[in-house]
Simulated assay, not measured.
Amino acid sequence: MAKIQETIAAQLSRYSIAGYDNIKQHVILSVALAFCIMAHTYLLVFFAMGKIEPLIIANIGSLAIYYFTAAFLIKRRRYLIIRTIIVCEVSLYATFTGYMFGIGNYIIGNFLLILVLQLLLPYGDLWYRWMLSLFSISLMVFSFSLGYITAPVLVLPDFENGIFIAANICIMLFGTCIEIKIEQIILSVIDESHKYSLEKATLAANTDALTSAYNRRYADEYIENLQASSPNVNFCVAMVDADKFKEINDVLGHDVGDQVLIHITKYFQTHLRQNDMLFRWGGDEFLIILKEITLPQAHGVLDRVRKQLIDTPFQAKNQAVNISISVGVAEFDLCNPYASIERCDQNLLVSKQRGRNMVYSGL
């Protein structure tokens, strides 16, 4: 069962959310056709051993219909037509079998199976399902009428009749269980795939496409969450700017500038504390929110990271590029978050005015 789930999940991973319904129909109907082919193969062998020619011909005809359906219609994804063929074939075969052997519980079961699956596995418009259901009911009524009007054409010996009845009941029960179980597995996998796709879409909406740092939109959401969940925790906020970034772009090109931003992002993501959050604020500026920390501690953490960044080698176009940053830090007041961000931005300006490559917090 786990193997089936893995296979279905692998198939679903190739489709968008809009395509999940198609792959669901594809898997369910492929399994249904495979089961019908196996069932009629068994019945063909059974009737061939008994040399019952009308049923041999009927089963060969059924197999031809299902092989054609599997070979051509499944590939063309004509799912509504496939379901119609399955319902009609099972109904007609049940009627023919009832005519040949008389109405038995297994024949009734075949008709009930069709009607139950119409309810459990809805597809198409409601009127279309009602039409197929009425077709099956009409054939069932006709089969019962034949049972009162005419005698069975064939009467099997008790032993063979017992095997035939038992086999039909098993086919009916297994067919229902398999179809329902496959439906449950697919719905479960689709649900997990929906969750994964939603998480993936949310992550894409919250992150910067170039650096994979959280973006400014998510920073606003994160700050709102902090205001609601952590009103009594000490925070600090820092604004980080890459020194002489315009010169890097002008001399080495924008592709190198992009690599510098990616390098800075990865470095901070690796060297900041686990609870600290990094956001790309815009251009070459990054915002950092540090949790459960005082201003002197935040100053020390960021200054250590700044010094280590300078000593970290970075190669661009076969030459070493010295990367340094300027940082402004301030206490983060959750009651006035954007005033705090403005204050750390002013501290960043002081850091740059004093020669860059430093952390300024006003201490």
Rank of each mutant, 00 (worst) to 15 (best):
N357M: 03
A70P: 03
D345Y: 02
V90C: 10
F35S: 07
D311K: 15
N234E: 10
D243H: 08
G102P: 09
N168C: 09
F47E: 06
I165L: 03
F72C: 10
A10C: 05
F279L: 08
Y93N: 09
Q274L: 12
T207H: 13
A32I: 06
T95L: 15
V141H: 02
I186D: 04
V31E: 11
N110F: 10
D243Q: 06
I325L: 15
H40I: 07
N347M: 15
Y20D: 09
I85Y: 02
G162S: 12
I28F: 00
T211G: 00
N234A: 12
E224A: 15
A70W: 08
D243K: 04
E179I: 03
D345K: 01
I149G: 04
N225G: 00
G19V: 00
C88D: 13
T84H: 09
S188G: 14
T207E: 09
N232V: 05
S326V: 07
T95D: 14
H263N: 10
R76L: 14
P231F: 01
N234M: 06
S324E: 13
F314H: 11
A167G: 08
I264M: 08
V251E: 15
S188I: 05
E292R: 15
G109K: 01
G162M: 07
G104N: 10
T270M: 12
C344H: 05
L261R: 02
A10P: 03
V240L: 15
A339T: 05
I190Y: 04
I149Q: 11
T270D: 13
L132Q: 01
F164T: 00
E192L: 14
V256I: 10
T7N: 13
I57F: 11
F332N: 03
L187V: 08
F286M: 11
I165Y: 02
L120V: 15
I223E: 02
M131T: 11
G102H: 06
L295F: 05
L112N: 07
T312K: 11
A330D: 14
K200G: 00
L295N: 07
I248R: 00
L173Y: 12
L154S: 07
C236M: 06
R78P: 02
E6S: 13
S91W: 04
E342W: 01
C177G: 04
I223F: 03
M38S: 15
Y222S: 06
E53P: 00
I86K: 02
T84E: 13
Y128D: 10
T41H: 10
I163Y: 12
I86P: 07
A64H: 03
I74A: 02
